[in-house]
């Protein structure tokens, strides 16, 4: 799955072309033209969700839902085993003379355990995948990408016409154009 794939780090990639936008409509138009020209857009960093952008850059469906399902199944299994071991196998308790093997009465534990595992699992995988966990270094291309700027990153390939790509960015209202290579940014 490549969750800890080193390739995810921008530092270890080829030279990146970076365009900074102030306006989301121009960004959408630019992204759309660049994508139609057959250039693969690595990612676009925006301070808030821009609807439709994921489709334009051809983002694949998030794996988070599947992870949630597996976490849920894990949690359910774990809790069922736990309550069976504790309450039936190891130390049966007489509470109000109720039978211990009555599964509906286990439901709250099973339900809460499932929810807990799913919530923690999803948060953990989400942060891990987005390189927001302690110990994983992440490059922030522009500190204002969390404020009022939108940043597009395109990884250069061997046959790529970099000039044309940069021109497309500029024509669609990119306010800054930069290069990022080996951890160093150069303003173009």
């Amino acid at each position: 799955m490549g969750i800890l794939d080193k390739k995810l780090s921008l530092r270890d990639r080829n030279k990146m072309l970076i365009g900074v936008w102030e306006d989301e409509d121009q960004l959408m138009a630019g992204a759309s033209e660049i994508a139609h020209a057959g250039v693969h857009i690595h990612d676009i960093y925006t301070p808030y969700p821009v609807h439709g952008l994921d489709r334009i850059i051809g983002a694949r469906r998030s794996k988070l839902a599947r992870i949630a399902f597996f976490c849920a199944v894990t949690g359910l299994t774990l809790m069922t085993t736990m309550i069976w071991y504790m309450y039936v196998h190891d130390w049966p308790m007489n509470i109000g003379n109720k039978p211990v093997r009555f599964t509906p009465s286990w439901a709250p534990v099973m339900f809460e355990g499932t929810v807990l595992c799913t919530a923690f699992g999803m948060s953990f995988f989400f942060f891990w995948r987005n390189r927001l966990v302690h110990g994983i270094k992440n490059e922030i291309l522009d500190i204002r990408q969390t404020d009022d700027r939108m940043v597009m990153a395109i990884e250069t390939t061997d046959g790529m016409d970099e000039k044309a790509v940069l021109n497309m960015m500029k024509n669609h209202g990119a306010v800054e154009l930069r290069e990022f290579h080996n951890g160093v940014q150069t303003v173009l």
Binding site: E24, D25, M28, S32, H51, G52, L53
Partner: peptide
């Protein structure tokens, strides 16, 4: 939200 494409 995506004002880029207008929907009539």
């Amino acid at each position: 939200m995506g004002h880029g494409h207008h929907i009539e």
